[in-house]
């Protein structure tokens, strides 16, 4: 059963990255849209993510619940040493979710919209930035459980070049996923062209920030290059991701939307796989050189058994219902 639980944890994180990421990205796209096109983008975006956005964010809840029930030591280590970025991310989640709903459900459309829009855009940027920073910090080996002073225990654990580069990389990936998703959500030729432009822009940004992640890793002494290139799975994942990039640009120019989505999702999955496979099942790398592993930090047997069962039963209820939701509200091609 422990592998069921670990699989669900990885799946939850991946799906949150893809679906929640595309959702954050929609706000990032809005941020990088010139003000004359903004209201149109907003409308497309609302139709596209309105019905599904809350479900997309449930993956975070699933992942966090699995962590605190099944891997309490990992959950509490993160909570203690990454308290500050987690807090900022949470503020972002609160601000973004409420601003999105408020701007739609305010019965009178007046100057308040300006405020909701601002909050929505900034929090759509800050939240994935800090999610990325947290993800980067977990594997960066900067978490120091023996630290005695405030800065090295609670600040340098996440405030370092590598974590920030991963954060920016995450933002670019979210924007990229969203742009690809939005291309398929509009029938307007002008809009389609705009989203294709955005996807291209975000793709270039992702490549640039991706390179920065490698440079920062080198600078901070993180063996990222070894993880990715000296490991068969990591290497093949990164090769597949790069090859699919060529196909992706070809399809972008052709404007094939449905395949494009799958391909973008595949690409991001491959990137995550390449980064995490080499040190799996180690989840948190510590400054002392030790690591907290998913297999070793796993909770007591009975807990894992019932958690696994709950997840399996839950999926039988959730997945068909969720699939139907996406199916029912996707844009019909005219």
């Amino acid at each position: 059963m422990q592998y069921v639980v670990i699989t669900y944890l990885c799946l939850g994180i991946l799906l949150y990255f893809l679906l929640g990421g595309a959702d954050f990205g929609a706000g990032i796209i809005e941020m990088f849209t010139s003000s004359k096109n903004r209201s149109k983008t907003r409308k497309t975006m609302y139709q596209a993510i309105g019905p599904v956005w809350e479900a997309n964010h449930m993956w975070l809840i699933i992942a966090i619940v699995i962590l605190f029930v099944g891997f309490p030591h990992i959950y509490t280590t993160m909570s203690v040493y990454l308290h500050i970025p987690l807090l900022i991310m949470l503020i972002g989640i609160i601000a973004r979710g409420t601003a999105f709903v408020f701007r739609h459900y305010d019965a009178i459309k007046d100057d308040m919209q300006w405020l909701y829009n601002r909050i929505f855009r900034y929090s759509s940027f800050i939240t994935p930035l800090f999610l990325g920073i947290i993800a980067g910090s977990v594997i960066s080996g900067h978490i120091d459980t023996q630290a005695t002073d405030f800065l090295s225990a609670y600040v340098y654990s996440w405030l370092n070049w590598f974590s920030i580069a991963v954060g920016l990389f995450t933002v670019a990936l979210c924007g990229f996923l969203a742009a690809i998703y939005l291309i398929g959500e509009t029938n307007d030729a002008h809009d389609k062209r705009r989203f294709i432009k955005k996807a291209e822009f975000m793709n270039v940004a992702a490549v640039v920030f991706g390179a920065m992640v490698f440079i920062a890793a080198q600078r901070d002494g993180i063996p990222l290059i070894d993880w990715v290139f000296k490991n068969t799975i990591g290497l093949s994942a990164i090769i597949l991701a790069s090859l699919s990039l060529i196909l992706l640009w070809y399809l972008l120019i052709k404007g094939k939307t449905k395949v494009l989505r799958l391909l973008a999702g595949f690409q991001v999955t491959m990137i995550l796989l390449a980064i995490s496979y080499a040190h799996f099942p180690n989840f948190i790398r510590l400054k002392s050189g030790n690591a907290i592993s998913l297999v070793e930090a796993i909770g007591p047997e009975k807990t894992i058994y019932s958690l696994g069962l709950a997840l399996l039963l839950g999926s039988i209820l959730i997945l068909p219902f969720l699939g139907y939701l996406f199916y029912k509200f996707q844009k019909k091609e005219e």
Binding site: P51, V52, E54, A55, H57, M58, I61, I62, V65, I66, F68, V69, G70, P72, H73, Y75, T76, S79, G299, P300, T303, S306, L307, A310, L311, L313, G314, L317, I318, F321, L322, L325, F329
Partner: peptide, 27 residues
């Protein structure tokens, strides 16, 4: 949470499912 998580986590994992279904149904 370090100690209580694995003991009282069951209702939370079921609640995750219920909450998820609620969000889908609300959509």
């Amino acid at each position: 949470m370090e100690h209580a998580g694995p003991i009282f986590g069951m209702p939370f994992s079921l609640e995750g499912t219920a909450f998820f279904i609620e969000a889908i149904a609300l959509g």
